[in-house]
Design a protein around this nucleic acid. Structure first.
Lengths: 199, 199
DNA sequence: CCAATGACCCAAATGGTCTTATGGTCATAA
DNA sequence: TTATGACCATAAGACCATTTGGGTCATTGG
């Protein structure tokens, strides 16, 4: 990875290195110099791809969510019954995040202390975008009268809110508890919520 | 309030003063001297009631939760139908906290940074205790076949988890959003959850 | 000519030193 | 016996010099 990048897009390489260095050093301690060296480029070249250190870290978080959304869309577009799809999506939204930041250990809260306002904004955006994907499945379920009536997006936002406490955010993955336990709590919450949609 | 305390229990007076000073100065800036003066006692007398500064702040948080639990019990023991009681309790658990710490503005997260491990522990305990009160109402609803079968405490914990993201914790009341908005989101979440219990 | 580079700039961070403040203790007085 | 505030030790803050690191840009090589 320290050799000049030839087989991989530089922007992605920077984000990969960011992922690793955030986990190792946290936001504050991670330097652009370290990053450049890790990628095998000059320090100034980093700024050809990202306007600031802050934006690099935020873009890494964005990337995690983009990957999640892609997974949610795959499930959403599947052929299972809408309630089964919803359940799988709720679980995925929690567990994918958990696994994506699990190696960040204590550094998640540290990042929050530096990037709080912008992270909060993005967080709101992420939830909106996720809810949009969820709402499509809800609308599906409503067409066949399997789900209650109501604005699909509104209902989706409720699903999102109800599972938000299970996400690693200010609580690190470590603080959230054992992975198995988080998964279990997520399933139970999802089941109750979907059951509520069915009436 | 600066006069010697005669008509009010000293411990309560200390906690009242803590509530006010936490809101004004935050945890770090609040001094035991300020506290003692606010109550009208000597600085050393504070330590007759609390072992440490840390414990004073934690006890104030405990007190908020005790008041909440009292309110939850009142609702729980009411004569309304179980689903109506549950709904009211879920809303109360969110809004009572919101209102109790709303005047803390930015200082909630500051407190968290100093008291994190102990706050997390207590937080777990609070949730357990709340879930116990909820489980009684769930058991009530199960007796009349109005609610689904299952361990009442387990189901109650799910209700608690599903509304946890709405509580002010690392997100201040300010960051959680407009009070009206929080209440609205809480109601929608409660409705969906209770609907899920009814099947 | 254009993109990559690393030297440069400057504000922020850090480390060292001294001073002050504060949590907690305890001798004293009521 | 209990309340008090002076005392103590350590932590925190202020100050200053030095170093560091985010961001910029003049230079070079392809």
């Amino acid at each position: 990875m320290k050799s000049a990048v030839q087989t991989k897009d530089t922007r992605e390489a920077i984000l990969d290195a960011t992922d690793m260095l955030l986990a190792r050093y946290g936001y504050k301690k991670m330097t652009i110099d370290d990053l450049a060296q890790e990628v095998g480029i000059g320090k100034g070249s980093v700024y050809l791809h990202f306007p600031s250190k802050e934006e690099i870290a935020l873009s890494q978080i964005d990337r995690i969510i983009e990957r999640l959304k892609s997974k949610l869309r795959t499930i959403s577009n599947g052929s299972a019954a809408p309630d089964k799809r919803l359940r799988e999506m709720l679980i995925e939204r929690v567990m994918f995040r958990f696994d994506s930041v699990n190696h960040y250990s204590q550094s998640l809260n540290e990042m929050l202390s530096y990037l709080r306002p912008k992270l909060l904004q993005r967080r709101k955006r992420y939830f909106d975008e996720e809810a949009r994907i969820f709402s499509e499945v809800i609308a599906d379920g409503q067409k066949t009268k399997a789900f209650v009536a109501g604005d699909p997006f509104d209902l989706a936002q409720t699903l999102v809110t109800a599972t938000n406490a299970l996400l690693p955010y200010s609580l690190s993955a470590f603080e959230l508890g054992d992975r198995k336990d988080v998964a279990e709590r997520t399933k139970k919450t999802a089941d109750l919520l979907i059951n509520g949609l069915k009436k």
